[in-house]
């Protein structure tokens, strides 16, 4: 039996209620709500919960996808299908300046690429939409600096996060009042863990991008990590040739910047068992988190999600 199985029903139900409450509170306070949709498993879970929260209506906000143009191809196909099925509007934004300059993860380095194609792109899209309540699928257990994030996290007019200006959150009473230009990043999944997400996906039969399941895929090994060769834009190093390996992803980002793990887990039960036994952290495969010490905190202060 999988660890925690006997308890998971009741606690998933309480996590679900808590998340639905936060979604409704956000929408009740918002004049222009939006949900950032990253296509990953957490986004899938959040969208699923949003559909429940506002049933029988469709979620009363659009989905916003920041397209770096370096997502796995399978992800884009999945995104379009999912939004259509949920009956919500999908808004896609890419940083046109970055595209014109041809900013990419190979020639410009992961730090600059992430800044231009993700952080700047996000700021552009948020300014354009004038959103005041921005739902995101982040969890406190993902990364150390996120353990201190509020459920309703205040951002100034420049989308900056100031750790010392965050409002205390007591009980389930969220202070949603905003001055002009300010916004709130709302994390309804704050208290979920990676294992909770997988248990919920299994319990609710939520569809996720197939890249999460193990399969034979073409990869190269770089610095001890498996990088998938998703299309021919990826420059191969001298002597490097893609090999077929049985891999899957624990987290999905931009394909050259997200490393896969070797795995045989091709069912939800197997993935859950692997997650609970995991000895490595979930975001270890996210190369940008490790650019330098405290790098997630720095990115957040600049407006990264």
């Amino acid at each position: 039996m999988i660890r925690g199985d006997d308890l998971s029903g009741a606690w998933l139900a309480s996590l679900e209620s808590e998340t639905i409450e936060v979604l409704r509170e956000g929408v009740a306070a918002a004049s222009r709500p939006v949900m950032l949709y990253s296509i990953g498993k957490d986004s899938s879970v959040l969208l699923h919960l949003a559909r429940k929260a506002f049933w029988p209506a469709a979620p009363p906000f659009p989905l916003l996808h920041i397209d770096t143009t370096w997502k796995f191809r399978e992800m884009i196909a999945f995104r379009d299908r999912t939004a259509a099925e949920a009956g919500v509007e999908l808004r896609v934004h890419a940083n046109e300046d970055g595209l014109r300059e041809g900013v990419n993860p190979f020639d410009h380095g992961s730090e600059r690429y992430t800044d231009v194609m993700k952080t700047v792109a996000l700021r552009q899209a948020l300014d354009e939409g004038g959103y005041d309540i921005i739902f995101v699928g982040t969890r406190r257990d993902e990364e150390k600096s996120r353990a201190k994030e509020r459920v309703f996290s205040l951002r100034d007019a420049a989308h900056r996060w100031d750790p010392r200006a965050q409002r205390p959150e007591l009980w389930n009473l969220y202070n949603t009042r905003l001055a002009p230009g300010e916004s709130l990043r709302v994390s309804p999944l704050s208290n979920w863990t990676e294992a909770d997400v997988w248990r919920y996906i299994r319990a609710e039969e939520i569809r996720i991008v197939p890249l999460y399941y193990a399969a034979e895929r073409p990869v190269v090994e770089r610095a001890g990590r498996w990088i998938m060769v998703d299309d021919d834009r990826m420059p191969l190093l001298p002597g490097e040739a893609p090999r077929q390996r049985r891999i899957r992803f624990r987290t999905l980002g931009c394909y050259p910047l997200t490393a896969a793990v070797e795995s045989d887990a091709d069912t939800l039960d197997a993935i859950l068992a692997e997650t609970l036994a995991a000895d490595r952290s979930e975001r270890e495969g996210r190369l940008i988190d490790h650019d330098r010490d405290g790098s997630m905190e720095l990115k957040k202060k600049q407006g990264y999600f």
């Binding site: 660890r3 925690g4 406190r140 257990d141 353990a147 201190k148 208290n191 863990t193 294992a195």
Partner: peptide, 8 residues
């Protein structure tokens, strides 16, 4: 600042 951590 107050931090929330989960474990099981």
């Amino acid at each position: 600042d107050v931090a929330y951590r989960s474990f099981e």
